[in-house]
Design a protein around this nucleic acid. Structure first.
Length: 268
DNA sequence: ACCCAGGCATTGG
DNA sequence: CCAATGCATGGG
């Protein structure tokens, strides 16, 4: 038993709900009440525990990845104190207490996942992504390591199209993998510069860049204004709205607000 | 069979 | 600058 202590509110089931909501996720596998994920070629098991989570193995390589994966860097208490005073958000801290947006620990994976989700339903995206993982990833225990950038750079667009990608999306993925963009270096840049670098690549638009800021870099002010589900969540609150302008109302907690609004909208 | 789903590039005004 | 169009799959 290796306890990773978690400060502040935390609910593993709420945080990992996205890994089972649209079918099992081969790269973040929920099984028997625990999350399985390949980290550096090893299978890591994350299970609920008093005061935090039980992580096996827990060491210098796995801990930062798990912290990111579980959204432990978010300032939930400050968000809750703020949200309690915003009428249309006031129910969220109680209803989703301890929900931390799960981040995608790897930059390349985050972008490819977003490409799979462009335009199609998340059920379709999940099915296609799982085929991609099984075709080009590596099985590590029960879970799978997401395909590496190097492996997908070596893949022909036709091989990707055979998995259900449109010809266009297959080119996006191959082009991203083969590009000379230093993905790790993006973490040091401000939000606007990250978006400029990403959207310079074919197939990466503003929606994809915003979700990269939100779900990979965990930037507090990220706000996916082009997101269809977020727009519908806001319309259910306010009626027809300009999503981008509405986001300013939620500064400096746009990222957490977006995730909580989506959680409420998608929860029956 | 048909329609929509957590976009994007391309084309044409 | 804005509107229209095609894309491929899964689920209703």
């Amino acid at each position: 038993m290796a306890l990773l202590r978690v400060e502040g509110p935390f609910d593993l089931a709420l945080t990992t709900a996205r890994f089972r909501a649209f079918g099992p996720d081969r790269a973040c596998l929920w099984e028997n009440g625990a999350l399985l994920r390949a980290v550096g070629g090893r299978e890591v098991r994350i299970a609920p525990a008093a005061g935090g989570v039980d992580v096996e193995p827990l060491d210098a390589e796995t801990e930062p990845v798990v912290r990111k994966l579980l959204g432990l860097e978010f300032e939930l208490e400050a968000f809750y104190a703020w949200a309690a005073r915003v009428p249309e958000l006031a129910d969220l801290p109680g209803r989703f207490h301890g929900f931390r947006p799960a981040l995608v620990p790897d930059a390349f994976e985050a972008l490819v996942v977003s490409i799979t989700a462009q335009q199609v339903s998340l059920a379709s995206a999940t099915a296609i992504r799982n085929r991609l993982i099984e075709r080009f990833g590596v099985r590590v225990g029960r879970a799978w390591a997401f395909p590496t950038r190097e492996r997908l750079a070596a893949a022909a667009p036709g091989e990707l199209a055979a998995l259900g990608f449109s010809a266009r999306k297959a080119e996006y993925v191959a082009g991203l993998a083969r590009s000379d963009l230093d993905l790790a270096a993006l973490a040091a840049l401000p939000d606007d510069a990250v978006k400029t670098r990403l959207t310079a690549l074919r197939g990466l638009g503003e929606w994809t860049a915003d979700w990269f800021l939100a779900r990979h870099l965990g930037r507090a002010g990220a706000w996916p204004a082009g997101d269809l589900a977020l727009r519908k969540a806001l319309v259910s609150l306010y009626g027809e709205v300009d999503v981008r302008a509405a986001g300013e109302r939620f500064a400096p907690f746009q990222n957490l607000t977006a995730h909580y609004l989506l959680a409420r909208y998608l929860t029956p």
